[in-house]
């Protein structure tokens, strides 16, 4: 869901170790990179590496029909052009679902017929899978290895609140990191004792800095990135003065990493 805010179509690169997704938004200002490792699934089998080109908007709609207690099984046969999702409804009764989803063989862009369906555990939900032949050039392969000048770790809820509040006030924000202070909305690391009594400074802000950094970013994108906040209790902001910002959410099964090109000139 947090990816579908940024990109509409993307390739899920499936191999025997994991499922990865890398995609840029249409304006090439942001890039999202997702990895979910095989151990993160109850069971996982991938007989051969294959790219699954999926319309994320449709996938999000279909996944919204699942309840927390459902177990979702994703299947794609060899040479398939359909991704098969089956929800194993634990409860005995069936609840009617109203949703639209792609019919097998329909083009991704055409509007889907609204469809009223009594969902049952046995009835597989098909969404049309556009296997996109041109998978995107993976461009983040070297950025994670980039040695960033600074890394700020803070509670993801705090980051979400800050960028949401600031986005009410303007379009962009300057993030400045020095030894003791991350100046987004004047966050300070809770490093020295005298900070203890100042409860306005949130706990759990850790600043690692090799070199002072000061960059300006679009708040619209930061707000979009913060939608991944529910996946992890904390978020890392990695910055250097000459590479895109990395907003990283790590979770048990893998990660979501969002890259954002800075704004330049004051």
């Amino acid at each position: 869901k947090s990816c579908s805010i940024l990109v509409t179509d993307a390739n899920f690169e499936c191999n025997e170790e994991n499922i990865m997704l890398q995609a840029m938004d249409n304006s090439h200002i942001a890039l999202v990179s997702v990895e979910i490792g095989a151990p993160g699934f109850t069971s996982y089998r991938c007989d051969r590496t294959m790219p699954l080109g999926v319309d994320l908007t449709s996938l999000t709609k279909v996944l919204r029909c699942a309840k927390d207690e459902n177990i979702c099984t994703l299947k794609a046969a060899d040479e398939a052009d359909v991704l098969n999702l089956v929800y194993d409804a634990k409860s005995a009764f069936f609840s009617p679902f109203f949703f639209a989803f792609m019919w097998h063989g329909r083009d991704a862009s055409s509007p889907f017929p609204p469809f009223f369906l009594l969902c049952s555990a046995l009835l597989p939900l098909f969404i049309h899978l556009n296997i996109s032949l041109s998978s995107q050039t993976p461009i983040t392969s070297s950025w994670p290895e980039t040695k960033y000048d600074t890394r700020v770790t803070l509670p993801s809820a705090e980051f979400t609140r800050i960028v949401r509040d600031l986005s009410q006030l303007g379009e962009h924000v300057r993030i400045e990191v020095s030894k003791e202070v991350v100046r987004i909305s004047k966050l300070k690391a809770k490093s020295s004792a005298e900070d203890e009594d100042n409860d306005s400074i949130p706990t759990g802000v850790v600043i690692e800095m090799n070199q002072h950094v000061s960059l300006t970013f679009s708040l619209k994108y930061l707000v979009n990135f913060s939608k991944s906040g529910s996946l992890s209790g904390e978020v890392q902001l990695l910055m250097s003065n000459d590479v895109p910002l990395l907003v990283a959410y790590d979770f048990t099964q893998g990660y979501i990493r969002c890259y954002l090109a800075p704004k330049i000139g004051d």
Partner: peptide
């Protein structure tokens, strides 16, 4: 007003 860069500016870093 700051001007938005795009990611292609950074591909050369790879």
């Amino acid at each position: 007003t700051p001007v938005q860069n795009d990611l292609s500016e950074y591909f050369s870093l790879l």
